[in-house]
Amino acid sequence: MIILFVVACLATFLLTYFSTPLVKKFAIKIGAVDKPNERKVHEKIMPRMGGVAIYLSVSIVYLLMIYFTDLAGSNLGYAILIGGFIIVLTGVLDDLIELSPNYKLLGQLLGSVVAIFFGLQMEFITNPFTSESIYIGWIGIPLTIFWILAITNAMNLIDGLDGLASGVACIASFALFLVSLSLGNMMAALILLMICGSLVAFLFYNFYPAKIFMGDSGSLFLGYLLAIVSLSELKQVTFVTVIVPILILGVPISDTIYAMIRRKLNNQPISCPDKNHLHHRLLKLGLSHKQTVLTIYLISFIFSLLALLLAKVAVWISFIILLFYIILIQVSAEVIGMMQSRHRPLITMYKRIRAILK
């Protein structure tokens, strides 16, 4: 099995490495390029659609593994092939003609339906204190759709700097690979390792200064894939099985939550873009492009380590760690300016307590 893992990872690496320049030329030829504007950091026209190379590499290697080895196809693999194709196609169309939010949502919903069709949905909720399982039936369907849409769009929102989304997704994929391996989910582990190989190769072209962007075809596909792979561990919804993938994907999830809160406070539509995401704020604090990306890599790595730790400790300790994590995230968001200056509850509370003590 180890040899199979190594071969699959190496194969996706090589396929992505050699196919990305071809995708880059094709993107330029058909006009799938990203033009600079006041919201974006880059200053020149860049080809996108890099996600096509990632999707094709993972899909081809997966199919070859099924055909030439004793490895049996799985519902997870088929969901990635079919649902992933719908997601990538949605992203490609958006890269070309900038789809409206409603059409992008429709594509993501169709991908979610495919995942549910192949049995990737939440089915049970477990009381963390009594270990009693409750079958949730059809309620698992909207919960599953919400989970897929949330993770998919969270990954899409952080794709704002060279190599940012691809690097964060690579770190998250490897952490989820370790979780799947520990749980004995070999197919999920294999697919996640294939994604890691593909993303490492793509970073040769996407890390600062980038030669190609992954575009929505890449960020949406990576978010979708990470969402449905984590679903393969979420059929039994326990405190730990939910919190572990949330922490592993902590950067895109928290960035998305603060974007939604920020836009609500500003009376703006949730889909309205702005320049107050985590990477924008770090840039405004004086970090360079590369320093910002590496800083967020480090944060993602720490979150992943924390998630792996939570999977090994008692539930009550997990609650304490999670509470500390939430407070730390909130304070950090307030300090670097991801919230409005008049909406900094923890800093305001600290100042009031300090004033009273004086």
Rank of each mutant, 00 (worst) to 15 (best):
Ser217Lys: 02
Gln236Thr: 12
Leu199Pro: 03
Phe117Leu: 10
Arg39Gln: 15
Ile151His: 09
Ile2Arg: 03
Ala53Thr: 08
Leu14Phe: 11
Asn276Asp: 13
Leu10Val: 14
Ile136Thr: 05
Val52Glu: 09
Leu357Lys: 13
Gly83His: 08
Glu98Cys: 00
Phe26Met: 15
Ser254Arg: 03
Tyr325Leu: 06
Ile145Trp: 13
Gln340Ala: 07
Glu123Met: 07
Ser74Ile: 04
Lys211Gln: 02
Asn267Ile: 02
Tyr208Val: 04
Tyr103Ile: 08
Arg263Trp: 07
Lys284Val: 04
Lys25Ser: 10
Thr295Arg: 04
Pro273Arg: 15
Tyr208Gly: 00
Gln330Val: 07
Asn37Met: 06
His280Asp: 11
Ser173Trp: 04
Lys290Arg: 15
Ile248Gly: 08
Lys351Asn: 15
His280Gly: 09
Gly51Met: 10
Ile134Glu: 02
Phe177Cys: 09
Met186His: 05
Ile116Ser: 01
Gly137Met: 10
Ala154Thr: 08
Asn276Phe: 07
Ile212Phe: 08
Ile321Cys: 05
Asn267Val: 01
Ile302Gly: 11
Leu199Gln: 06
Lys24Met: 10
Asn102Tyr: 13
Ala79Thr: 08
Gln108Ser: 07
Phe117Asp: 02
Tyr103Ser: 03
Thr348Val: 05
Ile66Gln: 09
Ala72Cys: 00
Leu190Lys: 01
Ala32Leu: 12
Leu22Glu: 05
Val313Glu: 10
Met1Asn: 04
Val168Asp: 01
Phe117Arg: 00
His279Leu: 09
Pro36Thr: 14
Leu89His: 01
Leu282Ala: 06
Lys24Gln: 14
Gly83Cys: 06
Phe118Val: 01
Lys35Trp: 02
Lys290Leu: 14
Gly50Cys: 06
Gly163Val: 10
Ile141Ala: 11
Ala79Asp: 09
Ala165Gln: 01
Phe117Tyr: 13
Ile270Val: 12
Val200Trp: 07
Gly77Pro: 05
Ala165Gly: 01
Ile191Glu: 06
Cys9Ser: 08
Ile134Arg: 03
Leu328Ala: 15
Gly111Gln: 04
Lys35Phe: 07
Gly31Phe: 12
Lys351Trp: 06
Ala307Met: 12
Leu328Cys: 11
Met338Gln: 13
Leu178Glu: 05
Tyr297Gln: 07
Ser341Lys: 10
Gly286Trp: 12
Leu249Asp: 05
Lys35Pro: 00
Gly119His: 07
Phe118His: 03
